[in-house]
């Protein structure tokens, strides 16, 4: 049996969730969205899953549609929060984890989803950050991810615009800014997985088996530390793979990847 990088990637995102956490994803985030459901169906059955743009609590959607605001995503939820109910909870510190991505991500985990290039005449006007600008300051931990690391344009030395807060900004660190949230804990890319060291800089912890440290370095615009026990990402279990496939029959997670990346196929090891 084989599996593909999109499936393994989603499983790696899911593993950043701990059981009994309150977890949220934004819109336009199918990988994070699928990952949250995988976590809830495997190792984190008692998490509180807040479904993106629906604000539904612990739904069991029959499939994940390619839009985040669809009634299929609140199927099976006994309760849906109001918009303000979720954002108030996030602002007062009652949400433990949020998934965040960006067109640009710097070494401190600041993200740009607003514009690449000069602000008055951007080279690329990105979509915008939803609620991230405010609540990235107050949510417990952030799992950052990107499926575009290899492009060389995503992990940058500095963001052209900071939409969402990482560990350290030009205006100071989280402590100086008075923010209660812990900031980025993980950065998962299609090349590897980073955590953050004591100074708030990304540190490479694991890579996928078909990736080298040179691949990571040549695609990364910032200097990063490498963990002394740099390892390989733990392969997905049969239960995790089954959960990915059951939750996402339409394969919306694949829409985040360059078609070339989706050719990356792996064999389930036989024990």
């Amino acid at each position: 049996m084989t599996y593909t990088i999109d499936e393994w990637f989603v499983v790696a995102l899911a593993r950043t969730i701990r059981d009994r956490e309150v977890v949220f994803h934004g819109f336009g985030s199918p990988c994070a969205q699928v990952a949250m459901h995988v976590a809830r169906r495997t190792h984190a059955p008692d998490m509180l899953l807040i479904e993106g743009a629906m604000y539904a609590i612990n739904p069991d959607p029959p499939f994940i549609p390619p839009t985040s605001n669809d009634n299929s995503l609140k199927q099976g939820a006994a309760y849906s929060m109001r918009f303000e109910e979720f954002f108030d909870a996030a602002s007062r510190g009652d949400v433990d984890r949020m998934f965040l991505s960006g067109g640009q991500i710097d070494g401190y985990g600041n993200t740009n989803v607003t514009a690449v290039g000069p602000l008055d005449r951007p080279k690329v006007k990105l979509g915008g950050g939803g609620g991230g600008c405010n609540i990235s300051a107050t949510i417990g931990q952030l799992t950052l991810w990107t499926t575009r690391h290899r492009s060389g344009r995503t992990l940058v030395s500095s963001c052209d615009f900071i939409t969402d807060i990482g560990h350290v900004t030009p205006a100071g660190d989280r402590k100086a800014l008075g923010y209660s949230g812990g900031g980025p804990q993980w950065l998962v890319t299609e090349l590897g997985i980073f955590d953050y060291d004591g100074s708030g800089i990304a540190r490479l912890r694991e890579m996928w088996p078909d990736v080298t440290e040179d691949d990571v370095r040549s695609s990364t615009g910032f200097e990063f530390e490498v963990a002394s026990d740099l390892g390989t990402v733990e392969p997905p279990s049969p239960a995790e793979l089954a959960a990915v496939r059951a939750i996402d029959p339409l394969g919306v997670r694949r829409s985040e990847f360059d078609p070339g990346e989706l050719q990356r196929t792996f064999e389930v090891a036989l024990h």
């Binding site: 602002s91 405010n134 615009f161």
Partner: peptide, 29 residues
């Protein structure tokens, strides 16, 4: 940002001239 817009609407709903909001400091918003 969603929270900022919500907060600005709440100020209008309440008839007060401003409200505080978390975040924004440190961003380019």
């Amino acid at each position: 940002c969603c929270v900022t817009i919500l907060t600005q609407l709440r100020a209008a709903e309440m008839g007060v001239p401003f409200l505080p909001v978390r975040g924004i400091k440190g961003t380019d918003m």
